[in-house]
Amino acid sequence: MPPTDPSADSCHPSVTELTDLTGLTDLTGLTGLDEVTDLDEPTESPEQVLGGDVEDTLDLRLPDDFLACLSEEAGGAGAAGIPEAAAARGAGGPVADRPDLLDGVGAWAPAVTPAGVFQLNPVRLDRDLPLIVRWMNDPAVAAFWELSGPPQVAEEHLRGQLTGDGRSVPCLGLLNGSPMSYWEIYRADLDPLARHYPARPHDTGVHVLIGGVADRGRGLGSTLLRSVADLVLDSRPACARVVAEPDLRNTPSVSAFLTAGFRFAAEVDLPGKRAALMVRDRSLRHLL
């Protein structure tokens, strides 16, 4: 599983107020990042269903009639087009026109950032797997993503998304044309994560790792997080919140989210980690 920094739980977790994260400024070692949204006060401990050895987002299958409704609402191909698109994704074919449940991540416009022009490029296994495998085997990344090992480990994780129903899209992040980060853009409201907070329709989650050591520890993570969150909000009019759940042990990750305009929502126990639940609101994007 990716870090819940890419993973999460179900129901309403036990939440304690976090009081010592707002002053974090050190971004050294930014490698594993995640998301989530507003939490109500929980009333009971949840059944734990996410993590390295339990139920994953991509194991849940939506009914075809529901997928058809979502696709038609987004101007997509309908239920019949989803399996065909999934087969194309698994084969590593063209990506820009693949139907997904995220308003076509592959067609999102590039973003001009203080660091340069940034673009999300949906993963192709035949092209991108060796680079992603190398990043996942970096010890600083492996500590939170838990996808180190032979290529088959990362390939299985990626293929699960590429052959899924389009609720999660793995991407390379290109800065001035060069791949330097890995991202997962996913429908948090359709994810087991939604069981841990009062999810709203079209809540969108983000997982990220900065691949190159030279790109870490200089504020680049927070710059790109802000840009990607804005890309989500600009490209998905129905989405009101971008969410994340970085591991509390990953201080640079939590700090990067705060610097990027996310607010801390809660501290929560998830399978395999204690997480800081973060949210960037459309209504506050120009204030934070």
Rank of each mutant, 00 (worst) to 15 (best):
M1R: 02
P3V: 04
P3G: 13
D5S: 08
P6R: 05
S14P: 01
D20C: 05
D20S: 13
D26H: 05
E35D: 14
T43S: 14
E47W: 05
D53F: 07
E55M: 11
T57L: 07
R61M: 05
P63F: 08
D65S: 13
D65P: 01
F66K: 09
A68G: 15
C69M: 14
G75Q: 13
A79H: 04
A80K: 10
E84L: 08
A85M: 09
R89H: 06
A91F: 08
G93L: 12
G93C: 08
W108K: 04
A111C: 11
A111P: 00
R124D: 10
L125W: 10
I132P: 01
M136V: 02
P139K: 14
P139Y: 11
A140W: 06
A142T: 09
F144N: 04
P150Y: 12
Q161W: 01
D165T: 03
D165E: 15
S168M: 06
C171P: 05
L172M: 15
L174C: 14
E184R: 00
A188E: 15
H196Q: 14
H196A: 12
Y197R: 02
P201I: 07
H207M: 05
A214T: 11
A214L: 09
R216P: 00
R216T: 00
R216C: 01
G219V: 00
L224W: 08
D230K: 10
L233I: 05
S235E: 15
R236K: 09
P237V: 07
C239F: 08
R241N: 12
S255C: 06
T259K: 09
F262M: 02
R263K: 06
R263L: 03
D269I: 02
R274H: 10
A275Q: 02
A276N: 04
A276K: 01
M278C: 02
V279W: 07
R280Y: 03
R282M: 04
L284Y: 14
